[in-house]
């Protein structure tokens, strides 16, 4: 295989990995604080992408500036979801959370289809024709911006969690809810905040995905969300470094492995394309990891 092709795919994987990481960090935060898994997280990504699309279409300003607005909007939606849906069922069992999320998936996907049709939407990024050449490979500028944005988000998130009072309070809540409440932390407010932040990160992922030239439609959220689940399962529930490592690994593996398999079976004279197996490969990785370690690679014992 050509080395420059491989490098190109590596960058593509890195870029896909960034989207998974943003989603996974949000999920992890919500899980950490509330001990709730929101299976409808991908629909928040979808809403974020639509928010970015409409703000851009109506205002026409630089799409990268819109991300902040989309994040705020989704943060508000996140608060509503937490208050109206997840708070009433907290502590009633994990199956209920799964079922409630299914309801949210149906609700959001079809609401989007009803309001904005199922047609594909896209944004023309002002930098879509610009690319940076490093040696023999050419990288679209948008990919680099997205990778940089993700790094910035991660640093800001880490600083918020470690240095601010609110961040500390959230970490305290995720470590021990009762003790945190006894120390005077308003744990329910922390729930709300974690959901808002998680939704905002999903919106960031969605708008970055859209700006980088991907299309938005009401069903775009499910596959990235599943990958994000794979990422937090592989990386371990609640572990942020785990999510980063697993996100990048998954993004690269699912893009590089189909080519490896293709050239491998090519050795036996079989010519077959495996790009259609991309999503399947992500799941095989997930299943293999879970069979070996049911709590994930970096996961703590129990939950």
């Amino acid at each position: 295989m050509d080395l420059s092709v491989l490098l190109q795919i590596l960058v593509w994987g890195l870029y896909a990995g960034c989207i998974y990481i943003l989603l996974a960090i949000g999920l992890n935060l919500i899980f950490g604080v509330m001990k709730v898994v929101n299976f409808a997280h991908g629909e928040l990504l979808m809403l974020g992408a639509y928010a970015a699309f409409w703000i851009y279409t109506l205002s026409g300003i630089n799409p990268y500036l819109i991300i902040a607005l989309a994040m705020i909007l989704l943060g508000i939606i996140g608060v509503f979801i937490e208050r109206l849906c997840f708070r009433p069922i907290m502590g009633t069992g994990k199956l209920n959370e799964i079922f409630l999320s299914l309801g949210l998936i149906y609700l959001f996907q079809n609401l989007a289809a009803l309001l904005w049709t199922t047609g594909s939407r896209s944004i023309h990024s002002p930098y879509s024709d610009v690319s940076v050449s490093i040696g023999s490979i050419r990288l679209p500028l948008d990919y680099i911006i997205i990778i940089v944005f993700t790094i910035l988000f991660l640093i800001a998130f880490q600083l918020f969690m470690k240095r601010t009072t609110l961040g500390r309070a959230m970490r305290a809540t995720s470590q021990n809810r009762e003790a945190a409440a006894l120390m005077g932390i308003h744990v329910e407010r922390m729930d709300m905040l974690s959901f808002a932040l998680g939704s905002a990160l999903a919106a960031a992922a969605g708008s970055l995905w859209l700006i980088s030239g991907q299309i938005a439609n009401p069903y775009m959220g499910s596959i990235p969300a599943i990958k994000a689940f794979a990422v937090i399962i592989i990386g371990g529930l609640g572990s942020i470094p785990g999510a980063i490592v697993a996100g990048l690994t998954l993004g690269i593996a699912e893009n590089v492995l189909p080519l490896f398999i293709q050239s491998f079976v090519g050795l036996f004279g079989v010519s077959m394309s495996f790009t259609a197996w991309k999503d399947t490969i992500a799941f095989f990785i997930l299943i293999i990891v879970l069979v070996i370690r049911p709590t994930g690679i970096f996961g703590e014992k129990g939950e």
């Binding site: 994990k94 689940f229 299943i287």
Partner: peptide, 26 residues
């Protein structure tokens, strides 16, 4: 593959099997 898993993981993995079955079929 599922018997040792907790609720959420099991939900994700079974979901994944439906997607795998879909890919294999197509």
């Amino acid at each position: 593959t599922c018997i040792r898993m907790r609720e959420w993981f099991l939900a994700m993995v079974t979901f994944g099997f439906a997607i795998i079955a879909h890919t294999i079929t197509t």
